[in-house]
Design a protein around this nucleic acid. Structure first.
Lengths: 235, 235
DNA sequence: CGCGAGCCTGGGAGTTTCCTGAGAAACGTC
DNA sequence: GACGTTTCTCAGGAAACTCCCAGGCTCGCG
């Protein structure tokens, strides 16, 4: 019998991709985020698992052998399931193709994505569909970050951030006070195939400090030999 | 029959490394910490032992003859086991290689590591995965140490510690009232290949006393000829 | 009480880690 | 295809940290 979701149950997510490593990466990350996860290796398996698992959301690769992602989504829609879909597309996929197909509550993320970004999109959709109650507004001291509008305020003043700066700040604000290691931050904020110099983190911390931190009353603190931490300054 | 973990059972840890000395070092340290430990000398043995032992966490060397650590982790994941892994990597292993594989609840530690650091990482993961209930906050008299935020308080006052100072204090607070020998402390807090002067311990004890101890009501006591002990002062 | 071993701590050298500016490369826009 | 924006690389210099040393102090013991 298909489980029936209660208010406080973890949301269920079905991950569909033919690349084993991607499926594993996502399953692990999403389970860690507290979701209940099942996986499928192709479209047919997805359609097979769907009715029994009854996910709240499907993460669906577009490029798959056999049924492609769009086709699968169409069949799901035909079953009168209003389940939202997050498509995974290759970078070179023309955006127009994806648009048009992502009309409902759907969304899409281009590979390679950062895990943090995908999780944020999923959370955003679940908020809109009312599955997850938490609001998308993060607040810490005088800092405010709205995940849905992507607006950031410092003491009420709007601040313009680039995409990477925004994701970095969001990750810090999702883990206030914790000392996050450089590796954790790089893993969550940068794309999963980022192979470059880890010192890029320092550059972006520098950018962020300039834009959202105050020389007096700094919130972004270096934890030497470990990483960074968002916390109140010592008195 | 595979044992089933009860709430208060010790967590089970499988240690996999081809260097006998490392395996023994870790097995001893972890058993002493109250974990149930099994060991394996290579990837094949790990995969063999895994289903029967059903560990809550695997400590896995990356560089091993035959199956390497990544490959083993992949095979474990294929068995739908969501077991978290702590990878042991050589210092010169590029971070990028490990990144992307440590996304879930996983983590990694570079060799040579300090035993204390590895144990701390293990505890942190088990806390997050809900296996171990204890919070990451150590308290002794007016001293508080938060393992997640890496914050230390003396009578509510925040204290800034360097990395080594923090690890030393954490080790003392994990073993309150016990007289710890110089060798024990050096073995746990410093990297296992530390070949320097053992008198460095005195230097760091001095630093710590200055930062977290009170001249009246000292907590860090010298046990002459043995080592140090964290305890209340004699009245 | 006096001696020696063990311990404490200030000073400082050497190394590691971090910060930031400058600019190259990639991307999107008109 | 030229421009502006964003991402990323690189390098010099500053700062923080680890570790060693040496002189002096303390404790325990004879």
């Amino acid at each position: 019998m298909a489980p029936t979701r209660q208010a406080d149950d973890p949301a269920r997510i079905l991950v569909v991709d033919d690349e084993r490593s991607i499926v594993e990466l996502l399953a692990m990350a999403l389970r860690y985020e507290g979701f209940e996860v099942e996986t499928a290796a192709d479209g047919a398996e997805c359609l097979d698992r769907f009715p029994r698992f009854r996910p709240d959301l499907v993460v669906l690769d577009v490029m798959m052998p056999g049924l492609d992602g769009f086709e699968v989504a169409k069949r799901l829609a035909e079953q009168r399931s209003a389940v939202p879909v997050v498509f995974l597309t290759a970078r070179d996929t023309t955006e127009d193709k994806v648009r048009g197909l992502t009309l409902g509550g759907d969304d899409y993320v281009t590979k390679p994505f950062s895990v943090e970004e995908l999780v944020a999109r999923i959370r955003s959709i679940l908020r809109r569909t009312g599955v997850s109650a938490e609001g998308g507004r993060l607040v810490f001291d005088g800092l405010e970050l709205d995940e849905d509008t992507r607006e950031v305020f410092r003491d009420g003043e709007p601040v313009d951030l680039t995409d990477t700066e925004f994701r970095l700040l969001r990750y810090l604000m999702l883990n206030p006070r914790r000392a996050l290691t450089r590796a954790q931050i790089l893993d969550h904020v940068w794309n999963y195939d980022f192979g470059g110099d880890g010192r890029i983190l320092e550059t972006y911390v520098s950018y962020l400090r300039r834009k959202v931190d105050r020389p007096q009353r700094p919130l972004i603190h270096t934890v030497r030999g470990v990483g960074y931490s968002l916390r109140l300054p010592r008195p």
